[in-house]
Design a protein around this nucleic acid. Structure first.
Lengths: 216, 216
DNA sequence: ACCAAGTTTGACCATCCAGTCAAGAAGCAA
DNA sequence: TTGCTTCTTGACTGGATGGTCAAACTTGGT
């Protein structure tokens, strides 16, 4: 029987708990960054703990000292990202100017694709495999947020302030177009040549597209 | 030294050779179909030969009687698909009506996403991993075709028959929007509810979008 | 019926890989 | 320095998985 003086037999800084030491903070951060690199490039099954550990500059058992399992690393990574993922859409303001709001949303998503392509590919990988680990998030938080903003967009349409378009498809189209530049960057680079940035000209094109489509 | 009477020590119907018997034809077809199912859902690393064999109704060594390796199955699958993949864009006719041609191309791609979602996810998986097995195809055949059609679209723009837009981004946008309905179907289903077909309303939305954007 | 080629399989091997463990090496407070 | 806690690692285990092989079983032509 454990005596009261026994320390909790937990992994250091396990799920959500604040890291206790400087070393922990540093190593957990390194691991998550390495995991993002590896998982986004190879998918969950395609990644190995060894790869992640090496990328993080640690040994495999050392990595497993900080996270219980490969799955635990992946979960920690995802839950750290889910909130940021909602941020751009949350920002869409029902009281703002419809065109401006939608175009700003598109631009924020496009900027995220440029700044966080690994995160985008991580999500894409998950959803391609049928989203088993994201079911809960998508069907609750994301769905609620999308439905809320879709209502706003539908109202703007009924009021004649933008063209009447299916608001869900409008949101999906923004996801498709902006994430394409992160998820399919390899293809774009091979077609346009490595000397171009895949996103060159993308913002101008998408501005034109949404301005035209949304004009009342 | 091999005598002239020796049969070639090859796998039956290996790469490109026509299958010799009915059994071969049937089993190779079953294997490729099963492989498409498994690879598109789990990626290359995530798929196992056992899974593919079971899905095809064969034993693992039996599958390996028809294909040398997991890699060989994957290659055969890809090369069988590459041609079909180019077909819709090839079809875009420089002598036709610009709006009609581009809208038809979009509709053909959308139809392919509905009819062949597994193929679409297989490609998406490949490109997400950095397209190592598609480099040659993309940077030669696909690139040439895209550049050729981009010139046609650019000319249409200069002639004032459609709006002047970056033709490469126009093509990418069609890929992004149409393939999204296959590759991210899981996400769309979770957001709209399983009772909707993910593509419901997509064609109307995309018609609106491209009609508006391309109007001169 | 007979035979040669084509097909199928159980048993097996080698490697990879997630995860364990016990022992040793820092860190750190007194 | 001492003693306790936190980190780190080499060596290991067990199971999964890609691939082999020789022996069997089918098939189809004669």
């Amino acid at each position: 029987m454990p005596t009261p003086s026994m320390p909790p037999a937990e992994k250091p800084g396990a799920s959500g708990a604040a890291p206790r030491s400087r070393i922990q903070e540093r190593n957990r951060a390194r691991i998550l960054d390495a995991a993002l690199e590896v998982f986004s490039n190879h998918g969950f099954r395609g990644a190995t703990i060894d790869q992640i550990a090496t990328e993080a500059g640690l040994s495999k058992p050392n990595l497993l000292y900080y996270f219980d399992s490969k799955d635990a690393v992946h979960s920690a990574l995802l839950s750290r990202l889910l909130d940021d993922w909602l941020e751009p859409l949350r920002h869409l303001d029902a009281t703002g100017d419809p065109q401006t709001e939608i175009l700003s949303y598109m631009r924020r998503k496009l900027a995220m694709s440029r700044t966080y392509p690994r995160e985008s590919r991580l999500f894409a990988n998950e959803i391609l495999q049928g989203a088993p680990r994201l079911e809960r998030f998508i069907s609750t938080e994301l769905r609620a947020l999308v439905d809320e903003k879709a209502q706003v967009i539908a109202r703007w349409g009924r009021e004649g302030r933008i063209a009447e378009v299916d608001p869900h498809h409008l949101i999906f189209s923004i996801w498709a177009l902006t994430q394409h530049y992160a998820d399919f960057a390899a293809q774009i680079r091979l077609i346009r040549g490595a000397e171009h940035d895949p996103q060159d000209g993308a913002e101008a094109f998408l501005n034109h597209l949404y301005t035209r489509m949304l004009a009342p």
